[in-house]
């Protein structure tokens, strides 16, 4: 039996990519239950889930440039999955914060959100991911049409918020947030350039 290209994507590539996207989560669980995280495992979980949220946001944002530059049009089949994984890791990250860091002390959480800029922006970015996750299904795309596209441009703001959140929480060594900021600048810069080129053509 030979599989058609779309079958190949659906039956082989998609499950593979899905599993690979879960690997960071599985590794984290493995290390947690085997006691091979650091002496402060709860902080490690917060750090790891936060980092993977940002990585999946950037992976999602790189789909369009990669498709257009290298003509890998099939990549579009994976964009939704990557976006939802960003939401998955973001949700875990948010849960670790309200649970392991604040122990559901809502008053403290509200104070944090209103008083601490890096938490404000991280929280806002997470909240903005919710409508995107909710409307990520085919049905919603058909239902919302043009509005869907506009709504999903929120990912630009969400990712900028994510990078700023990371930048503002480090103590002095900004090397890693800087790397994410550069990558994000390239990915957004590409879109700005394309936008102006298309304007000129008109």
């Amino acid at each position: 039996m030979t599989l058609s290209k779309s079958q190949l994507i659906k039956r082989i590539f998609k499950p593979t990519v899905f599993f690979l996207s879960l690997v960071p989560f599985l590794i984290l669980c493995w290390n947690f239950f085997n006691d091979t995280l650091s002496a402060n495992p709860l902080d490690d979980i917060t750090d790891e889930t936060g980092t993977w949220t940002l990585r999946f946001l950037l992976i999602t944002l790189s789909i369009t440039p990669l498709r257009k530059i290298f003509h890998w049009h099939n990549l579009i089949n994976f964009r939704k999955m990557f976006g939802l994984f960003a939401f998955f890791y973001g949700t875990l990250h948010f849960i670790t914060y309200i649970w392991f860091d604040k122990f559901f002390e809502w008053q403290e959480i509200l104070t944090d959100i209103s008083k601490r800029p890096f938490i404000t922006i991280g929280f806002a970015s997470f909240v903005l991911m919710i409508p995107l996750a909710v409307t990520s299904f085919q049905k919603m795309i058909r239902l919302l049409k043009k509005k869907w596209q506009i709504l999903h441009r929120l990912i630009y703001i969400i990712t900028i918020g994510g990078v700023v959140h990371y930048w503002w929480l480090v103590k002095s060594d900004i090397q890693r947030p800087l790397m994410y900021a550069i990558l994000l600048t390239v990915l957004l810069g590409y879109r700005i350039v394309i936008f102006f080129i298309s304007q000129k053509k008109v």
Binding site: A39, L42, D43, R116, P117, L169
Partner: peptide, 13 residues
């Protein structure tokens, strides 16, 4: 950037 009211003693939940 953060509260100093509480701390996590390493090894405690």
């Amino acid at each position: 950037r953060w509260s100093q009211a509480r701390e996590r003693r390493i090894g405690e939940f």
